[in-house]
């Protein structure tokens, strides 16, 4: 995908990924030394949204599927965990498969319909399905409705409550992020990934050589939905609380912004984009309530002038997953 030779591409990419993950891995140690706990909580949040952004990047950056309802999977994953907990089911051996199955099924059904459309229609219909999930959540009066639902604890691992420990939880989230990133990288580089990226460039070309892109897009959509569902499950655990706000269309828009900010067509970019977005939001909102007024123009500048997104400024370089 670039004019550099493959080994050069690989090493540049490796450097970028190593830096990012080394920063994540080292952060709790640093924070402990400084006695700062907020940073750890905040970084957990960053990593959770980075998982969601990576999943969106997979379909948006590599498949040109502009899903405006991706936050629905975040919410769906969160509600799966919280509702199961409400019924006394805390163990990951149940909650994780249920979360992935529910999100995968929702993606399969809504994706099968949405992917019959293209362009603006696809954006609209994914938005509509997202809103449907949102309003369904608000009407779940047994589970808090509008007010959301508090989880009195965290997911257990074979009966162990180890996730209750902040540092353990941090590294579990980091492990999930690393797994999702590597999984997405592998998918992008596979035969499947090549079909996905080919279909983004010219659907007619793919049909002409005997490939119907529909099923490939649908499978990618389902994978992305399940990945975002995992992010949702982690988000519920991080906050020990879920609410319909997780699924609002603002949230879906923010996920798109994270991916574009970091650099379309780069999985590492999605992680950097999620981190930058949340840090900027946090910092700017300290100065002024109207932080969006500053953030909006900043975003426009990045999109206009930094065509490869923030990732193109990193040693990892642009367009290298």
């Amino acid at each position: 995908m670039s004019t550099q030779s493959a080994p050069a591409r690989l090493s540049r990419e490796l450097i970028g990924a190593l830096i990012v993950f080394a920063l994540f891995a080292g952060l709790p140690i640093l924070a402990d030394a400084m006695g700062d706990t907020f940073v750890v909580f905040f970084t957990i949040r960053i990593m959770v949204f980075a998982i969601a952004a990576v999943s969106l990047s997979l379909i948006l950056g590599y498949g040109a599927m502009v899903s405006f309802g991706h936050a629905a999977y975040l919410g769906l994953g969160a509600y799966c965990v919280a509702i199961l907990a409400e019924h006394g089911i805390w163990d990951v051996t149940v909650s994780l498969p249920v979360t992935l199955a529910v999100c995968g099924l929702f993606a399969l059904v809504t994706g099968a319909i949405s992917l019959k459309t293209r362009g603006v229609y696809f954006i609209m219909i994914t938005l509509a399905f997202g809103q449907m999930a949102y309003y369904t959540a608000t009407s779940l009066s047994a589970y808090g409705g509008d007010d959301g639902l508090t989880m009195w604890g965290r997911t257990e691992i074979l009966g162990s409550t180890a996730l209750g420990d902040r540092t353990v939880f941090y590294y579990v989230v980091l492990g999930c992020l690393l797994t999702c990133y590597l999984l997405a990288r592998m998918i992008v580089a596979s035969r499947f990934g090549r079909v996905l990226q080919g279909a983004k460039q010219s659907e007619m070309r793919l049909r002409a050589i005997g490939i119907d892109p529909y099923a490939y897009r649908l499978i990618a959509y389902v994978i992305a939905g399940m990945m975002a569902g995992l992010a949702g499950a982690l988000l519920a655990n991080a906050a020990e609380f879920v609410s319909p706000a997780y699924m609002s269309w603002h949230r879906s828009g923010e996920l798109i912004v994270m991916v574009v900010l970091g650099g379309l067509g780069s999985l590492l970019g999605a992680i950097v984009g999620a981190a930058s977005f949340l840090v900027l939001e946090e910092v700017l909102s300290h100065f002024t309530e109207h932080w969006r007024l500053i953030f909006g123009p900043f975003l426009v500048l990045v999109v206009l002038f930094g065509r490869g997104g923030l990732i193109s400024l990193l040693p990892g370089g642009r367009k290298n997953g």
């Binding site: 596979s190 499947f192 460039q201 499978i219």
Partner: peptide
Amino acid sequence: LPAFTARENVALALQAREGHSFRFWRNV
């Protein structure tokens, strides 16, 4: 496919010839 190299363009056609591409693990 403008973003693909010439080789990738042809390789995708060969890949299509070999049946389905639901292969996720190996680096193509």
